[in-house]
């Protein structure tokens, strides 16, 4: 019986996705009931990480389901981008300004982060010698 459950959960993506949804649903209900300051998904991630780290469940039970959900994440946030339907004012100067903030801001973040990491990496390399 246990062996069969193990095989079923390790090989099939759908029961794994269902298990992840159930875990999220439970955590989300808990967050709402206790009005915790973290989103249900983040609590669910912490719970799953704890279960994996303590060996409570083997990672094979969630690997395929996780990969499936993460692969299609772009689809899940597609509906949010349609909010632009109600904000026609963004297809104007305001929209261009937002675009400018995003482009310049993203360049700063990327250059800043990469150079900070590179500096750390080289500093550590020098000190390790």
């Amino acid at each position: 019986m246990l062996r069969r459950t193990n095989i079923l959960l390790s090989r099939n993506r759908l029961p794994q996705v269902a298990a992840l949804i159930t875990l999220w649903w439970g955590c989300d209900a808990l967050v709402r009931a206790m009005s915790l300051p973290v989103p249900g998904g983040v609590l669910g991630m912490a719970v799953l990480l704890l279960l994996l780290a303590t060996g409570g469940i083997p990672s094979a039970w969630v690997r395929r389901g996780s990969a499936g959900l993460l692969d299609h994440m772009l689809l899940f946030f597609a509906p949010a981008t349609m909010a632009l339907l109600d904000h026609p004012e963004l297809f104007s100067l305001t929209g261009l300004k937002i675009l400018a903030v995003i482009v310049v801001g993203t360049l700063l973040v990327m250059v800043g982060t990469a150079l900070a990491v590179e500096a750390c990496f080289r500093w550590r390399g020098r000190n390790a010698d």
């Binding site: 992840l20 669910g44 912490a46 994996l52 990672s59 969630v62 996780s66 990969a67 994440m73 899940f76």
Partner: peptide, 13 residues
């Protein structure tokens, strides 16, 4: 997106 956030536990692990 909620369950997808939960799924991030796997790559981190």
């Amino acid at each position: 997106l909620g369950p997808a956030t939960v799924a991030f536990a796997t790559p981190i692990y």
